[in-house]
Simulated assay, not measured.
Amino acid sequence: MQVTLKPVFLDRFRAALCRLGCADDRLLCAVSGGPDSLALLLLAQQILPGKLVAVTVDHQLRSDSANEAQVVAKICRDLGVSHIILTPDEKIVGNLQSSARTARYALLERAADAENCQHIATAHHADDQLETLLMRLARGSGVDGLSGIRARNGRVVRPLLEFTKAELIDICSSGGIEAVNDPSNANIDFDRVAMRRWLASTQHPFPATRALRTTSALADASDALVWMTDTLAAQRIRQENDIIICKASDLPRELKRRLLIRCLRKMDSNLAPRGDAIDRLLTDLENAQASMIGNIKCLGGADWQFSKAPPRRAQENSL
Rank of each mutant, 00 (worst) to 15 (best):
A166I: 06
E131Y: 04
I149H: 09
A219T: 01
A314V: 12
L319N: 15
G148E: 10
G140D: 12
I278F: 08
Q203S: 15
N95D: 15
M195Y: 01
N287Q: 14
R280H: 12
K6L: 08
R274W: 04
P273E: 14
A219H: 03
A272P: 00
I47W: 04
G145H: 10
I47H: 05
L28A: 11
G301Q: 08
N181W: 01
G142I: 05
T4R: 11
A100L: 02
A217H: 00
N185F: 08
R150I: 04
I47A: 11
V157R: 03
T202N: 10
P205G: 03
M228N: 12
P311E: 11
L86V: 11
T56C: 00
S249H: 11
F306R: 04
D242T: 13
R101K: 12
D242A: 11
P35Y: 15
K308A: 15
A69H: 01
Q97C: 15
D11M: 03
G300N: 03
K165G: 12
L251C: 04
P310S: 12
K91Q: 15
E167L: 13
I120S: 10
R136P: 05
G294R: 09
R150S: 13
A112N: 09
V71C: 09
T4C: 07
W304V: 13
L271T: 07
E167M: 13
W198K: 05
I237P: 13
I47G: 01
L299S: 14
R312A: 15
A248P: 01
R280V: 14
S201C: 06
G275Q: 12
I75Y: 00
P35A: 15
A233F: 04
S307P: 04
I75D: 03
R26I: 09
S63C: 00
T231W: 11
Q2L: 06
L271Y: 07
R110F: 03
L259R: 07
A248E: 09
S174E: 15
I188E: 15
I261W: 00
L271C: 11
A194M: 09
N270V: 11
A66H: 05
L38Y: 08
H125A: 03
G176V: 07
D230C: 08
I85Y: 01
A15G: 08
